[in-house]
């Protein structure tokens, strides 16, 4: 019995939900400063079009 839950298939789900969240946090912290990329012209062009053509249309 874990945390008052008898069935392993259910307490495993409870524990894995917490573990998955911890995994996300650990991954996020470990990679906090990784993956920075320079903003390219195509990124800015994309964002400009998103603003003018898509957002303004709404």
């Amino acid at each position: 019995m874990v945390l008052g839950i008898e069935s392993p298939a259910v307490w495993l789900a409870y524990v894995l939900s917490l573990a998955s969240a911890v995994l996300c946090v650990v991954y996020g912290i470990v990679h906090w400063n990784k993956g920075e990329e320079p903003v390219k012209k195509e990124d800015v062009d994309w964002a400009k079009e998103e603003k003018t053509e898509v957002e303004d249309a709404l």
Binding site: C24, W32, N33, G35, E37, V39
Partner: peptide, 19 residues
């Protein structure tokens, strides 16, 4: 999103939020 870095950082908060 601006970069892979933004996604890495957001993953941490996202996991907690969905939990």
């Amino acid at each position: 999103v601006k970069s892979k870095q933004s996604l890495n950082r957001a993953a941490a908060a996202g996991g907690i939020f969905i939990l």
